[in-house]
Amino acid sequence: MNLRLHIWRQAGPADQGMMKTYDLAGVNEHMSFLEMLDVLNEQLLNAGEEPVAFEHDCREGICGTCGMVINGRPHGPIARTTACQLHMRSFKDGDEIYIEPWRATAFPVVRDLVVDRSAFDRVIQKGGFISANTGTAPDGNAILVPKTDADHAMDAAACIGCGACVAACPNASAMLFVSAKMGHLSYLPQGQAERSTRAMNMVLQMDAEGFGGCSNHYECEAACPKGISVEFIARMNRDVAASALFGRD
């Protein structure tokens, strides 16, 4: 198939940036979306031009490195699918495709489609963990976890930290990401001891990073390649309210 691509080009953080148009011929339906961009980049290189910078690593939808807005949707048109797992059979000959970076104050553009998501790391550093030094653990089966709780925890823990939720949200809110980590840990008995300090500290950092608030658009859930539910946001709000009420132990 032949495609017309409109891609955001920005040489560096200080550059203005603009959309540029490229025609790409001979795209195969079995290619992944990123392989299609690889083909474009090889062509650009062969023509002596700078290739489009985009991030990727596993290409299996698990590392959370890839991410771009495709025709207005983070990770593109197919639900629960990262850009690297999107295949060209979802497009047809003659399509025009618009490709842009995540847009959010907390995720400044580094180059072309590459953004800086280190704000996520800093939120985790404030409380997205269970404090269990190596060597202190009791036997694994000493802590029983009901299967349904383990399943809920796993649903939340499936987050890949790609940032699509932020990119999809009109307020650039990180609530889905933050609440997923809290939900993962708060469904487990091991996570109870620090539950309320965790909630408070993560939310304070989230605000400090410049992420917006949640006004219940639920675009995040729709964009999440792992289908993480907004129910975790409600759960997080309860935890934050409880920690505010009962102090920060």
Partner: peptide
């Protein structure tokens, strides 16, 4: 396994 459980790794569980 003990260490990972303590950290909150959500391993598969039986009923």
């Amino acid at each position: 396994i003990d260490q990972c459980v303590a950290q909150g790794v959500p391993f598969a569980r039986e009923y």
